[in-house]
Structure formats: C-alpha cells, structure tokens
Design a protein around this nucleic acid. Structure first.
Lengths: 173, 173
DNA sequence: CGTCAGGTAGAATGTTTACTCTACTTGCGT
DNA sequence: ACGCAAGTAGAGTAAACATTCTACCTGACG
C-alpha cells in the first residue's frame, strides 16, 4: 500500500529529475515507477498528480539530506549546509531546482505554486534556525537559491556562497 | 525581413514567458507572433527553433534593461542594478528565469544549455564590470540568481540582495 | 501591366499521448 | 478451499499536436 506508493514516488522523482517535465510520457513514467499502468493511475489519477507526488517525495528527501545531523555550532552548520547543497547538486541535479522547473514548465498550476512556496518556506525557516541566523531568512534563501542556480555555471559557486553567508554574521542586520 | 523576424521573436518571447514551454502549441505561438503558420515555419523551421529565438530576443532585451545608462559610481550602480532586477521581475516574469525554465523543460537540449551558459556568463561579466567588483563575478551572479528565484517568494528580497551585495565591498575577497 | 518576393488562411497528415478497459495472476486471512 | 485486495500485461480510443501542402492575396519595381 504505502510501500507501493513510495516506490512509485521515488521512481517518478528520478524520471522527472533526469528528463524534465515535458518529455517523459506516462508510459516512460510507468517504467521508471516499476509498476503497471493500471496501478500507477490507481494511485495517481492524472499526470499532474504524478508531478505532485514526485515533488512531495523530493521535498522530504531534500530536507533530510540538508538538515539531518547538522553540526550544532552555528558557523560549522552554515558551512556544512552549503557544502551539502553542493553535494546535492553534484549527485542529484546538475541543472537547477526541480520545484522551480516544475512551475516553469506549467506556470498555470496553482497546486504547483503552493508546493513551491511551501517547500522554499520550510527550507528557509530551517536554514535560519540551524545556523543561528533568525532575521536573515531572506538572505539565506537568496544565497541557497543562487548557489543552486549557479552551481553548474561557475566552478567556485560553493566557496562564493560561503563567503556571502559568513558576511551575514558580521553585524549590520 | 528582419522586421518580421523581430516581430515573431518578440511574440514568441511573450508567449513562452506567460505560459511556459510545455503548454503553448505551435498554433498558439502563431497567434502570439501575429503571423501565419507558413511564415512562422519559414523563419523558424521547428518548435525548438522557436524557443531558441524567443530566448535570443529576451537576452538582448534583458541586457539592455539591466545595463543601459547605469550610474557610473560603483555603489549607485550596484543599487540600481538590483532595483532593476526587481522591476524586471515585477513587470516581466513573476516566476523565475526564462532560461533556466527552458533548460528545465527540456534538459536534453545542448543548444539550450549553451544558450543558458552564454546568457549568464555575459550577465555576470557585465555586472562585475559595471559595479567595480571584478573578482566577484561568482558572488554577484549568486546574488542576482538568488534574487530572481526568491523574488516571488519573499517580499523583501530586493533589500536582502542589496545588503548581501554591499557586503562584497567590505574587504575580505 | 506584369511579375515576383513575401505574405495570409487554413485543410490534411501522421504521429504521439493521456487515459481507459478487458482479461489474467498472485498472495493472504479465515 | 475460497474470495478478495492488489497487482500485471497490454490493446484500444479519442484528442492534440507538429509539420506540410494547396491555394490565394498584395504591393513595390522595372
């Protein structure tokens, strides 16, 4: 039951991350999910639902990967966070954020937009808490988003992001 | 000749910006371009070419909008640049960067990726030059990208970006 | 006046796609 | 042993879409 759902969501996430949101047909999504067409539609009655499920799965995976077992010391947490984003980009998506990609592919969907808002909101909130920088949510989000978008374009994006992030602690907030 | 081409490219840019890259059919693109199907295909023999042409048009428009008549004083230029990005977001695209969106919609296209690279490279280069911050291309790009992605999510993204940008000038590069 | 480049309108074609339906299988609790 | 919940395999359907083709218009120039 929930087992099958997780398997489906994980497969869909992989498929959309690898080939974008426009290209993969439902038949290809079925192969990626490792399940029959019937079952796929039983859990997710439309292609749009498949996109949502993939993003939901990625959301929890992303949060876990960034925030689980982060160092307690604020400065160390900040560095670790940025390193982890770099590692995530290297392993999972060389090209940009999947949530923004989904919204860009279908800007008309309000469900997608709500999902994006919720995802980024939670990331920003937890980043500010973990690094001891409340009141700097916006700047932190700018740096994280900037790093994500820039990673594949500039080799030294991670060190640039760290420099920016540490400047937040030198009083002027 | 070139006149028609510009009209087509402008229309296509508008269409893709408003409705994303997946949804609009070629018939809809024809309407947006204000030209017959025949003529559209004469100038741009495939839908992929239409995407490329739209991005090319946006590229020149974006550069002009950000960098034309920028103040000469570095600090004023920096503020103006960030304000202009905010204004661009307000007027042109509430949701993210069109180039990243195009790549996300079709990650397999190397032509799109080259276009993205070229676009961002030129933006970063000109930003560093105009603000008197050579050696900070990467950090500037992170801030600009971060602002672009964050603009619709956090109300105070522009002031956050300014704070980050000015921290670049306080020696530590 | 004729012609030719460059345009319009829109029908036709063939493929692709999301989604549905039919028929069959398998493991588990009682 | 039975029945049922949950799955597989894959053919069928109706619409949408990218691309091509036919036929016609228009205005500037020699």
């Amino acid at each position: 039951m929930t087992d099958t759902m997780i398997k489906i969501a994980a497969g869909l996430e992989r498929a959309f991350a690898a080939r974008g949101f426009a290209e993969p047909s439902v038949e290809h999504l079925r192969d990626a999910a490792g399940v029959s067409l019937r079952t796929l539609y039983k859990y997710l009655p439309s292609r749009a639902d498949m996109v949502l499920a993939a993003l939901e799965h990625r959301h929890t995976r992303y949060l876990a990967r960034l925030f689980d077992d982060l160092p307690e010391a604020p400065d160390a947490a900040l560095d670790a966070l940025i390193d982890r984003i770099g590692a995530w980009m290297a392993r999972e998506t060389s090209h940009g954020c999947l949530f923004h990609g989904a919204v860009a592919a279908d800007p008309g969907s309000s469900r997608l937009r709500e999902m994006l808002q919720r995802h980024k909101g939670e990331v920003a909130h937890r980043a500010a808490a973990a690094t001891g920088l409340p009141g700097h949510e916006t700047e932190l989000l700018i740096i994280m988003e900037g790093l994500t978008q820039t990673w594949s374009l500039q080799g030294d994006a991670v060190t640039g992001a760290k420099r920016l992030a540490h400047s937040l602690r030198r009083r002027d907030g």
